[in-house]
């Protein structure tokens, strides 16, 4: 196994106005690994995730301090183009949010906005991406149906396909299964195992079992601070910090 650092946060702080949401976070994300961010609601794990592709820029009066490096480059550097950054760091959201367009157009969207005009190239890419998201067999006859007519699990896998279509290097997943039933959840977890061969995956989850099953590295956040990080097995079986143990054994959270 390689242990290349794909992305890292270096003494990173984040504020919503006066509210200090993230304190001094230094965390490494390795290539081709699934890193799970866990912690009780409001601990800052989603905030951290959304800092990694600067999605928090959209929130007025928010402010970042410190560095986040992607392949050694600071993504908060003023010279960085946010649009290109988000192409490299894709995102899947908590609730499935396909556009009110057809299945095909949803997957093709990222290509189209990035200037791909060639029809056959788009068609090919859509098919390949749907296959990658294990959705091709189900979708090949429904490409021109509205994405809103799919089931929740299918919609979420479509959103993953949509994110993969632009060939990102990192995939951020913000509680991608919280709105799904166990079977759909299982499918997405299987998909993650598949995808980590070619991508770096960072997932926020409320579900301890999911973190334990699907991730290689687990980071536990509490009140905006990084409490513990390590190999998932180690964190779940021999947590070093008492708070981590209490959280994963369900004593608070």
């Amino acid at each position: 196994m390689n242990n290349n650092i794909k992305m890292l946060t270096d003494t990173f702080d984040f504020y919503y106005g006066d509210y200090h949401a993230l304190h001094d976070i230094s965390l490494e994300f390795y290539a081709n690994k699934v890193t799970a961010l866990i912690g009780p609601s409001g601990c800052g794990k989603s905030t951290l995730l959304r800092c990694l592709n600067r999605m928090n820029d959209l929130i007025p009066y928010s402010r970042a301090q410190g560095k986040i490096l992607l392949d050694g480059e600071d993504i908060y550097d003023p010279d960085i183009d946010v649009v290109t950054l988000r192409l490299r760091v894709g995102m899947v959201f908590q609730k499935p949010n396909p556009f009110p367009k057809t299945v095909f157009e949803n997957v093709a969207y990222g290509l189209r906005v990035n200037g791909v005009k060639d029809k056959s190239q788009i068609t090919e890419r859509v098919e390949k991406t749907l296959q990658q998201a294990a959705l091709w067999e189900e979708m090949k006859d429904r490409l021109h149906d509205s994405a809103l007519s799919l089931s929740g699990g299918q919609q979420q896998r479509l959103c993953i396909a949509r994110a993969l279509a632009v060939e990102p290097e990192i995939l951020l997943m913000d509680e991608p299964c919280s709105a799904l039933d166990p079977i759909a959840t299982q499918k997405i977890e299987e998909l993650m195992l598949e995808l980590k061969l070619s991508y770096t995956i960072i997932i926020v989850t409320h579900n301890m079992q999911q973190a334990a099953r699907a991730s290689d590295i687990t980071a536990f956040l509490y009140l905006g601070k990084l409490i513990e990080v390590g190999e998932t097995d180690a964190v779940f079986t021999r947590p070093k910090v008492k708070q981590t143990e209490e959280y994963i054994t369900g004593q608070f959270g």
């Binding site: 290109t84 988000r86 192409l87 995102m91 949010n97 906005v113």
Partner: peptide, 21 residues
């Protein structure tokens, strides 16, 4: 829904593309 805007921006669309498309 804001999630549409976020999804579009997350795919490397510009703000104008997001608004327009």
């Amino acid at each position: 829904p804001d999630t549409y805007r976020e999804a579009s921006l997350g795919l490397g669309a510009t703000k104008w593309q997001t608004t327009y498309r």
